[in-house]
Design a protein around this nucleic acid. Structure first.
Lengths: 201, 201
DNA sequence: TCAGAATATGAACCACGGTTCCGTTTGTCA
DNA sequence: TGACAAACGGAACCGTGGTTCATATTCTGA
């Protein structure tokens, strides 16, 4: 495919491997601080590397961001897997969302990437699908335990979390407390006490 | 200040007044279609006017967008005022959110402006404050009627709606149905049946 | 230790899009 | 109708930031 993303294809030279990692780390930091429109030059500088080197490892900015997003999805998936241990499915579910949100909160880049840079998002699609698969079992379990509203689809989670993250950055961020947002959202997701559902007019 | 934004200051020449309006209309269309990063040149073209003319009326792109956002806030405020007529405050409240969201849904520019272009957002701040004031009475009333959760602050609405709108555009838009998002959100806002949430099984 | 390939470097390139500028046109008013 | 200010037009300007490329450096295997 593209590059040395696959460790089996060909062994990178020692310094190259080191640089690649440095770049990824630097990118994570820079994007986290400045959001998706941070400059590639800054990433290079922070990594102590020339721009050209960045482009040797990643064909363009979108792929670089895509790689970061991919890693993030993977770590979320890991977290979800851990959450599966918990007996109380609702507890597990809400903790997962909380952790995810908290993580995003200090990582503006991801929000931006997920919401605006569609190329990066697409690049990370495989990882996202995998993550959603894990989360799906969590969701199903919470529904079976009667804690999560039955009509909720795991696929809808991206929409909700995307919205949550969106309000973290931008002009709205000022008057925004994401914990509060999440709280309201979770209340909306909780299964209702059986009777009296909303009757849309 | 800048220009003829204030109609009282000085009478615009007939053609200028006409053009100003045309530009605003064109801008609304173009931004609605292409989002906040539509080009000023496109706006000018659509308005059948030179770029220079656009800049004669609006010092820069941000102010142009700010003006659009301002108008939008005003129209939302109007809608909220109408909603005050309704006896059932919850009905009024949810209808307001629904109408607002629907409006945003076909107006990508606003979402973008509200979420990313902080300059435009600031420009429209007065209108926003006015709008919130109207909505606040609606909120208070819904709370007095016991339909809306007591701990909800009107100021939090921006955050929630911002999030809702965010998921309408961007890569997430695909798998996103904002009506669904709103439904969940409203469920989260509804006052709970008195006691603490209950553990169904 | 050496050759050659892999990798690094960063100045330069280029597209894009907001903004300016000045010659031209148009409305207004006497 | 004539004169002048107001308004218009749109080519040119300019900063920004992603991307490239020719040259220099470094690793690796023999």
């Amino acid at each position: 495919m593209t590059t040395q993303a696959d460790p089996g294809i060909r062994q990178l030279r020692a310094d190259a491997r080191r640089n690649r990692e440095r770049i990824l780390e630097a990118a994570a930091e820079v994007f986290a601080e400045q959001g998706a429109d941070a400059q590639v030059d800054d990433v290079a500088r922070r990594a102590g590397v020339g721009v050209g080197t960045v482009y040797r490892h990643f064909p363009n900015k979108d792929v670089l961001m895509g790689e970061l997003v991919t890693r993030k999805f993977r770590s979320f998936a890991d977290y979800a897997r851990e959450a599966l241990e918990e007996k109380d499915a609702w507890e597990a579910f809400s903790k997962l969302l909380h952790a995810t949100a908290a993580n995003m909160a200090e990582n503006i880049a991801l929000q931006d990437a997920l919401r605006t840079t569609s190329a990066a998002f697409e690049y990370a699609e495989p990882a996202r699908a995998e993550m959603n698969a894990v989360i799906d079992t969590l969701v199903k379990r919470a529904q079976r335990q009667g804690a999560l509203r039955k009509d909720f689809k795991t696929d809808e989670l991206g929409m909700l979390m995307g919205g949550l993250c969106a309000s973290m950055s931008g002009p709205l961020a000022a008057q925004c407390d994401w914990r509060r947002h999440l709280e309201i959202m979770l209340d909306g997701l909780r299964a209702k006490p059986a009777a009296r559902t909303r009757r849309a007019s």
